[in-house]
């Protein structure tokens, strides 16, 4: 009961529906809005962010469309003579060319790609090439990229990823600092959580689900901090 009461007190930011007018056309247009006859409309279910200069809509739900530079978490799906086919949980299947995974591969090794990276392996990769209607090209060359062999995967709606990361990484940093776990968040909504201790893993899962559910409410970071605090204290006891 107490819990329920607290819930209703949460402040919700303004939600708009597709086709809803947001502002006259006197501002710069951010994402998820369109112009018609001098007005700016939302093209999605989402939260309006508007100031004097700019208007945009933060979607409440979306699918992942790859964009250059994104860090994503994918699962190897198949091997071809020159690349690995990677499921990045998007309408566009990605490819990881041999040259973007290993820089000095012997000829004999090139014939056994299936042994270098196996089907089913989890990759943290960066989108190197992406474009309109194109299957993206991934790379493993870069800091903190590569295969992951430990941890659990959590799938969230890609629209919620920015909230889970938080402003300038605030949310994710709190999570990692307080729990001491490794949390890798793919832009595509796939998250790897790697902890020493299963209780903490479960706690992170719970918190991610909470953020997902309440992403459109105000004061979320504070509430998450409080919850973390309470739960961690219990863990220690």
């Amino acid at each position: 009961m107490k819990n329920k009461k607290r819930k209703t007190e949460m402040e919700i930011r303004e939600i708009v529906t597709p086709g809803q007018k947001i502002s006259p056309r006197n501002k710069r247009m951010g994402d998820n809005v369109f112009v018609e006859e001098g007005n700016i409309y939302s093209e999605r279910m989402g939260l309006v962010e508007v100031n004097e200069k700019r208007v945009e809509v933060i979607p409440l739900s979306s699918v992942y469309i790859p964009s250059q530079g994104d860090i994503i978490v994918g699962v190897v799906q198949d091997v071809t003579p020159t690349s690995w086919v990677v499921n990045i949980f998007s309408p566009y299947t990605a490819y990881l060319p041999v040259s973007r995974a290993f820089q000095n591969l012997r000829e004999s090794e090139k014939l056994e790609l299936n042994k270098k990276i196996r089907v089913g392996e989890v990759l943290v990769a960066q989108v190197e090439i992406a474009g309109y209607g194109i299957n993206p090209i991934l790379t493993l060359i870069g800091k903190r990229l590569g295969r992951k062999r430990k941890g659990r995967l959590i799938f969230v709606n890609p629209a919620k990823v920015p909230r889970i990361i938080g402003k300038k990484g605030s949310m994710i940093n709190i999570l990692m600092k307080e729990t001491g776990c490794e949390v890798i968040i793919g832009k595509n909504g796939v998250i790897i959580v790697n902890c020493e201790d299963e209780e903490k893993e479960a706690l992170i899962h719970e918190i991610i689900r909470k953020i997902e559910r309440e992403s459109h409410t105000k004061g979320l970071t504070n509430r998450v901090e409080k919850l973390l605090d309470e739960k961690l204290r219990k863990c220690k006891k």
Partner: peptide, 11 residues
Amino acid sequence: LADAGIPMRDL
């Protein structure tokens, strides 16, 4: 369709 987050001109 709106719930799926697909961009729309209107409902």
